[in-house]
Each structure stands twice: as C-alpha cells, then as structure tokens.
C-alpha cells in the first residue's frame, strides 16, 4: 500500500503520523514523478490558494488532475475538500473539480469562530472533529454520499474513490476516517 501526501504546504506531518498509526507509510508528493506507483493520495489541510499556486508552478497540478480523473483514490481534508470540489461558491477559480459538490470557503467564519467537537459518521460512529475556518458543502450531485453532517451541512462525503472532510481528523489522534480511506485504496476500484 503506497499512499502519497501532497506536501507543497500544510499539515502533512499530521497525516503521515495518522497513516503510520495504521501501519501505512506515507510518501511525500512534491513533484510529478512522486505520483508514480501511488495507490491513493491525501490532500492535507493548509491554504488552498497557496497549495494550488505551488502545484501549478511545480508542474504538479496537471499530472495530478489526470491521475485523479483516471480514478486515483483521493482524501482531502479542509483545504483538500476545496481542491477536490467541482465548484467554489465564493471564489472565482476551481481546482481539480473531481468531486461533484459546491463548497463555500471559510464558511464557518474567521479563526475566532473555529471549533472542535465530534460528528456522527456513517459506519464509523462518533468521530472527533476539528473545524478551522472550515469550508462547508452547499450543494452536491446525486452520486455523492453524505457520511456525516454538521447541522444541515455535509462535512464528510464520498463519491466513489474520493473521500473529503470539511474538518481535520488528522489533528485528533483518531485514525478511523483515514482507515476508511485506506480501505478505499485497498479495493483499488481504478
């Protein structure tokens, strides 16, 4: 099992630590050649605009998009869900656009309104969740499955091989959401 973690910027270390907890070695993805042989990729938390600019300038955005379109399993947290989504309601760009949802950036407000708690996730039980200037899903396509809600807003969603969270499971020490992603990668529905 070879899972990459996009490492241009963000909380890469926390994802690597969570993968290690599951006995999976994470591989840093900084350049196009790092995409070779991956069974899945994690797009971590960070600043989506900064990550996108860095990927574009390193020639990584196009080959990674091709891999995602070809079915490479992907798991995005916070900035990661923004990078994966088809539409951003309050931003002029879209990034990879492989997940049929519309997200609102910084939907939970500024840092003073960031919070932690837990959400009930389908099949996983109550998982701890840290929401930081979090994006929220505002619309989604029929193929998208909601795995957890915060009020009315989906915060953990899945469409085929793509898993995405508004929150940061990697900050909590609980590896259940990552475990689900590892299972998706193992099935390898590519």
């Amino acid at each position: 099992m070879t899972i990459g973690v996009l490492a241009v910027q963000g909380d890469v270390r926390e994802h690597l630590r969570t993968l290690a907890h599951l006995g999976v070695a994470g591989h840093l993805v900084l350049r196009p050649e790092h995409l070779v042989g991956l069974d899945g990729i994690i797009l971590p938390g960070g600043e989506s605009t900064a990550m996108w600019r860095l990927m574009t300038r390193a020639g990584l955005a196009s080959p990674l998009r091709e891999s995602l379109v070809a079915g490479l399993p992907a798991f995005g947290t916070c900035a990661g869900i923004i990078l994966l989504s088809r539409e951003i309601t309050n931003w002029p760009e879209t990034f990879f656009g492989v997940l049929d949802i519309a997200v609102e950036r910084n939907a939970t407000g500024r840092q003073v309104d960031s919070f932690e708690g837990s959400v009930a996730a389908n099949g996983l039980g109550e998982v701890p969740a840290v929401f930081i200037r979090a994006p929220l899903v505002r619309r989604m396509g029929p193929q998208v499955e909601v795995l957890a809600l915060l009020g009315d807003a989906p915060v953990l969603v899945r469409e085929g091989n793509v898993l995405a969270a508004s929150f940061h499971p990697e900050l909590t020490g609980d590896a259940r959401v990552h475990e689900l992603f590892v299972q998706i990668c193992e099935k390898g529905e590519r």
């Binding site: 490492a7 241009v8 910027q9 963000g10 909380d11 890469v12 270390r13 926390e14 938390g45 960070g46 600043e47 900064a50 916070c78 900035a79 840092q111 003073v112 309104d113 960031s114 919070f115 932690e116 708690g117 840290v130 929401f131 930081i132 200037r133 940061h168 900050l171």
Partner: peptide
Amino acid sequence: MDKGTYRVKTGFAEMFKGGV
C-alpha cells in the same frame, strides 16, 4: 462544539507549515 480551545489554536498554526 467548543471554540478557541488550545487544539483549535495550535491546529490552525499547523496549517501554515511549509508556507510564507
């Protein structure tokens, strides 16, 4: 849901890593 916890604060800082 708790706002302004130490984990929410330090976790936010983790998101800056590798950045300017």
